[in-house]
Amino acid sequence: MFCFCGSGVSLTKPTERQTEPQTCRATDSRVMEAIWLYQFRLIVIGDSTVGKSCLIRRFTEGRFAQVSDPTVGVDFFSRLVEIEPGKRIKLQIWDTAGQERFRSITRAYYRNSVGGLLLFDITNRRSFQNVHDWLEEARSHVQPHSIVFLLVGHKCDLEAQRQVSRQEAEKLAGAYGMRYIETSARDAINVEHAFTELTRDIFALVRTGDITIQEGWEGVKSGFVPNVVHSSEEVTKSDRRCLC
């Protein structure tokens, strides 16, 4: 029988990367991977070079890449997080290109996201000033759905070069109804926290019914749960398959 107390799975650690050709060993973790309550799709946006890909890589792969090529279009990552004991959410993360020249393409990808991380670089004032534009762009392209954003001040390990104070960032975030978190992919500061907080917020909205699963929208999908947790309200509420 299944243990649902959250032990055993690589929750705090990233799931094994698939590039390793481990033919048949991964059954266990794969089985566990199959069990999640919901899948949330998150999009990560922000100016180029603020560290979007690095942040995601730190979160999904547990390491920091010293060099990284600029993202072309969009890339994908996924990971499970456990927001409460026994409640796993699969995050599917769309890592968009920050460069202006890709803007027309990345625009197309907003619609199916339920949440997003909006990054700026605390050592780069310009990237902070662009936050407003990013937000506008995202909001206008997710219509008719809404999207939950978290403002992330990245590269907080570079305190000495800071150009954006925490206060003003918090103020801006508050004005748009977002939370604000400062992170560093290099020193692994708050990375976990940022993603988990956002996931929790979305989960709360799903629970209250403010966000619903919709046919033809990929933002939130409901997963499979064994019978054990079948009676929990989220499962019975969702319109998807029932395992009785």
């Binding site: 299944f2 698939q18 059954t27 794969r30 089985v31 990552f77 499979f224 064994p226 395992l243």
Partner: peptide, 29 residues
């Protein structure tokens, strides 16, 4: 496939090597 995996795992703990194309395809994004 995920459903099957979850169900199968719940019923018999000892399972053979199973390869699910769909899940793997997703795993590779």
């Amino acid at each position: 496939e995920e459903l099957q995996t979850a169900e199968g795992e719940a019923s018999d703990s000892e399972k053979k090597v199973v390869a699910h194309y769909g899940m793997l395809f997703d795993e590779f994004q």
